[in-house]
């Protein structure tokens, strides 16, 4: 299958700022890709290039084989900006109907997408009365209308409460199931809740990771934390046996490489009644993200030297 987004060594320079450097990224039809990065990492710049708002200073990018911003490309792309705003005098339904007309979508879609984002009850109220989360959902409704082949969502979950966020990822999964591609940006891995097929991490305009989440966790090879709570009075012998650091008068904490985990656990279980409880924690998504962000920083520093 041909990629719907195909970016090859895209670079973008604004006067003295390198917003993007040699970014290559592909999104296949039906794929959900998350674009991660801090503020100013270049996520929005990449979106603006894909929309054809700005032209990259180097490299090439195509949307289903068309130039970004061309008539053919605009027909298949839907966009949700980070700060979504609508004329506040219009009602939610009028806004969605407006974009449905502009995209040439059937007007029956309007009610359907309003129902999808749970705005049917508020649809006939003016946008100025909406909360931030409702406006965000209206933005999503506008993006979903007309079944676009590619959804570009710039920090779509930023204003949403955890429940709406979960609902949001279900909607995205729906889009992907019907063959639509989704490229969404986010601040951190933990916000994604492991709901995308692939994660691309931008760091100061460079792509420092681009792989499925489980691969990233594997690549990061971060230590696993094991906490052992000893039985009363047994803490000294447990500590002597397995090492690690004493947390308090009852627990020991130690870190091990993922490959050593089973060996260590069997050793701990060999201690028998001396151990009261064991707690094993894999590195959190945030730790994985921090790991890759740091790698990017190191590489950038090396490149400068």
């Amino acid at each position: 299958m041909t990629a719907i987004v195909k970016a090859q060594t895209v670079s973008m320079k604004f006067k003295s700022v390198d917003a993007l450097t040699d970014v290559s990224l592909e999104v296949a039809p039906g794929e959900k890709v998350a674009l991660l990065g801090h503020n100013g990492a270049g996520k929005t710049t990449l979106f603006r290039i894909m929309l054809g708002f700005i032209r990259p200073t180097a490299g090439s990018i195509t949307i289903a084989g068309h130039a970004p911003g061309s008539d053919a490309a605009r027909k298949i792309v839907s966009y949700l900006p980070e700060q979504v705003a609508f004329p506040k005098m219009l009602t939610g339904r009028e806004v969605v109907r407006f974009y449905a007309r502009l995209k040439g979508a059937p007007l029956d879609d309007v009610q359907a997408v309003l129902a999808k984002v749970d705005l049917v009850d508020a649809a006939d109220r003016r946008v100025e009365t909406y909360s931030k989360g409702m406006r965000q959902r209206l933005g999503l409704a506008q993006a979903l209308v007309g079944k676009p082949a590619l959804l570009l969502l710039d920090e779509p979950t930023s204003g949403l409460d955890p429940l709406s966020r979960q609902h949001f990822y279900e909607l995205i999964a729906d889009v992907a199931r019907q063959g639509g591609s989704v490229l969404l940006s986010s601040h951190g891995l933990s916000e994604l809740e492991a709901r995308t097929d692939r994660v691309a991490i931008l760091r100061k305009g460079r792509l420092v990771a681009n792989a499925p989440l489980s691969d990233l966790q594997h690549q990061a090879n971060l230590p696993i934390r094991i906490r052992v709570r000893a039985a009363p009075g047994a803490i000294e012998s447990v500590h002597a046996e397995i090492g690690g650091g004493r947390l308090n008068c009852a627990s020991v904490e130690l870190f091990c490489a993922p490959g050593d985990k089973m060996r260590l656990l069997s050793k701990i279980s060999g201690l028998g009644a001396q151990v009261e409880d064991v707690d094993v924690a894999a590195p959190t998504l945030d730790e994985v993200y921090r790991h890759f962000s740091k790698i990017g920083a190191d590489e950038a520093r090396q490149g400068r030297e």
Binding site: L51, R74, P81, V84, Y99, Q142
Partner: peptide, 14 residues
């Protein structure tokens, strides 16, 4: 400025 035009410009309308 208010961010209401970007979406319209991203739509298929020239």
């Amino acid at each position: 400025d208010r961010g209401t035009l970007q979406l319209v410009l991203a739509s298929p309308v020239s």
